[in-house]
């Protein structure tokens, strides 16, 4: 489970309701820290989302599809499980031990809490399975 703070900027035609419902349906738990949304004006919201890395990534994908601009307050890297082939190339450059191979199953393990946000793993991953949130938002 990961937690992150997102700042959302809505176009005027949006209201928050369907978006919140949709994110919750996608398996995220939400904590609205701040919201100012009124009909006909640009809306703003600061949201704390908690969920698996995959669900958060999907949530962000969804928001982007809705024409909402997003700012991430707590930066971090995100690994796409389905793209990861468990090769271990990223562990060669991770200075903090956030990325390590499980030497029993030889699967990659990612401990987000240990990540020091150096970003080395992003370019080291041959499968491009690790992305910076900023990059995800672009």
């Amino acid at each position: 489970m990961s937690k992150m703070k997102l700042g959302l900027l809505f176009p005027p035609e949006h209201t928050e309701e369907p978006i919140i419902t949709k994110l919750v349906k996608q398996g995220l738990s939400l904590n609205i820290l701040k919201a100012s949304i009124s009909q006909g004006n640009k809306g703003k919201m600061i949201l704390e989302v908690t969920g698996t890395d995959d669900d958060i990534a999907k949530g962000i994908d969804y928001l982007e599809g809705q024409d909402i601009s997003i700012k991430v307050y707590t930066n971090s890297v995100i690994r796409y499980e389905e793209k990861c082939m468990h090769c271990g190339a990223c562990t060669a450059v991770c200075p903090s031990g956030a990325l390590v191979m499980n030497t029993g199953s030889w699967e990659l393990e990612f401990d987000m809490d240990k990540c020091v946000l150096c970003g080395h793993c992003i370019s080291a991953c041959p499968a491009r399975a690790i992305k910076n949130f900023e990059e995800v938002l672009r």
Partner: peptide, 13 residues
């Protein structure tokens, strides 16, 4: 010196 694999033992298995 820290070692890291590049080929996937998980997939090979």
């Amino acid at each position: 010196v820290k070692t890291a694999p590049l080929s996937s033992l998980f997939k090979a298995r």
